[in-house]
Design a protein around this nucleic acid. Sequence first.
DNA 1: ATTGTTGAATTGTTGAACATTCCCGCGGAA
DNA 2: TTCCGCGGGAATGTTCAACAATTCAACAAT
Lengths: 231, 231
Amino acid sequence: MATVNPHESTERAAPGAARLRVAVPSVATRVASELRLQIAEGALPPGTKLKEEALSEELGVSRNTVREAFAELASERLVVRQPNRGVFVASLEASDIHDVYTVRRAIEVSAVRGGGSAESIAAVRAAVEEGKRAAEAGDSERLGSANQHFHGALVAMAGSERLDIIMSQVLAEMRLFFHKASIDGGFYQDYLSENEQICTALEAGEYERAAERLLAYLDRSEEHQTAVHSS
Amino acid sequence: MATVNPHESTERAAPGAARLRVAVPSVATRVASELRLQIAEGALPPGTKLKEEALSEELGVSRNTVREAFAELASERLVVRQPNRGVFVASLEASDIHDVYTVRRAIEVSAVRGGGSAESIAAVRAAVEEGKRAAEAGDSERLGSANQHFHGALVAMAGSERLDIIMSQVLAEMRLFFHKASIDGGFYQDYLSENEQICTALEAGEYERAAERLLAYLDRSEEHQTAVHSS
DNA sequence: ATTGTTGAATTGTTGAACATTCCCGCGGAA
DNA sequence: TTCCGCGGGAATGTTCAACAATTCAACAAT
């Protein structure tokens, strides 16, 4: 596992161009980000036990810092703490899948019904196009990513910081069992046209119709996920 | 401020009766609970700076433990962390009020539209009756509490653990500015009959009608809160 | 009045120690 | 054999003390 490096960030300061620097993330935050990434990529499959001492050595940080990172991840439900037993990468049961989709139905449908600004709908369109390009290129990883962008953009229509955060956490939770589901290639393909139609309805201002289609979409998706997961 | 005592819990072990012991909350969790309480009661008004060393002395715990408690509260948005500057009791701006109500509209309305089991609706009824009794007794504190129970019960209809947690956090956030709003006595009184009617609609299975009334209720409540807060 | 500089106070992080709890295997008793 | 209790090792929970890094306010200098 790579050590946590303060300068490995994707954004890199142009030489000499002193862009205004805001809040360098703390070490604990960077550790949390690293673990979040490894979990999302499947390098740390659900159920994996995360030992404090081992991680603190591997990442070159103290045990206390690792603990702070655990607290952050636990609040996002990516790991679960079992008192005096340790923290484990979260694994979703069948009931969790239904639960997650219940949250998605609530906030996504609500956001779509409420409509949004022209820019926010343009962002939805952008995600749809991103999905199309990924499908043409046969890049299933980017296709999945685009699909998440699509649903994130739907929620962003509401313009609520809190809803955005909730949605991002829900999407992070879904990644926990997506690499299992995405093994059957062309999984998202069925949904591409559905996304297109929802987006078209939004652009036409037909929010209620878009919401109905989205609801049907989510129901089918839950069904699919449940089927894949129970096998 | 009271020290955090392992045995000050409301439930007290009967002497000799070795009840099955379930997960005693960790010290950090108890510290977080204590702070949560003080914030809800207004003993720590919004904007108050929470110093690690002072708190660790006052509560008789180590600084690291206080930090873990801070992490918990920060994830609930009850406090905000400013890197290298400290943590402060959160204070809600006008935009936050709208944001919070956006979340409430999403999850409460969704839960009501989806209907619920007979027991879950009975819980809603119980909250309504609790509010009536509190109103008769003139106990405005219990009236406010009953109102929160009412809305919590609405969300519980969905039977989603995650929605319940989100709602409880939103309600906790609302308590941040409620003691300001609740100063004008009889604030909730207007809403009592509204709750009653929503509940009646639910009992009749008219979920859509209940949802419409709830939506109107939330819009009016937001308006009220915004007015009170901007003054 | 604006700009450095200094220094105290606070947070961020570390490392080590101790207490507590859990887990697992081992031996004794029914 | 099977069950029960009993260590002992390992991991977590918590504390403590120290140091680095940052902020902030007061003060000095231009």
